[in-house]
């Protein structure tokens, strides 16, 4: 829209949306406040989910809210990674100062992977299968940003 640019709409309406995370995620984030990570388990197939959820899609089984919780350690394995110079939230314009390594990490004792940054690890040393542990924010607030990222064990 280079020379033809006519109208640019930049935030003259502010309509923020607040999401209620639901009962399962509420419990999950409560445990973040104590720097602990928890998952929940399907009674049928035994799969442990992080983040926890109400339904195992494969078994079509409801996971009850009041039990099936599993306490998990702060450690995990790197299953996959990617490296990007861009800020994911604004690829068009802004580059991060340093390339970020973003990893898919399987928390020990769970069957799924979560996506976070890898911290203090040089690009040449990243290896699928490496052992990692969670780096928690000093004062967790009970939200996804409480996990700063993963560091090498």
């Amino acid at each position: 829209m280079t020379e033809k640019l006519v109208v640019t709409n930049k935030g003259f309406v502010r309509a923020d949306f607040s999401f209620w995370v639901g009962l399962y995620m509420d419990k999950f984030y409560d445990s973040f406040e104590n720097k602990k990570i928890i998952g929940n388990k399907c009674s049928k197939c035994g799969k442990v989910f992080v983040p926890p959820r109400k339904k195992c899609g494969k078994c079509n089984e409801t996971i009850p809210l009041d039990n099936n919780w599993v306490n998990l350690p702060n450690t995990g394995t790197l299953l996959n990674y990617t490296i990007t110079h861009y800020k994911v939230s604004d690829r068009a314009a802004r580059k991060a100062k340093k390339p970020q390594i973003i990893g898919m990490v399987q928390i020990d004792g769970s069957d799924t992977a979560i996506v976070y940054r890898l911290l203090n690890i040089d690009i040449e040393n990243v290896k699928i299968g490496m052992k990692l542990k969670i780096e928690w924010e000093e004062k967790p607030k009970g939200n996804p940003a409480d996990i700063k990222g993963f560091v090498q064990v």
């Binding site: 990617t82 994911v88 939230s89 690829r91 973003i102 996990i147």
Partner: peptide, 9 residues
């Protein structure tokens, strides 16, 4: 909220 996933990553 932590923004590590989009179509490219």
């Amino acid at each position: 909220p932590v923004a590590y996933v989009n179509d490219i990553t």
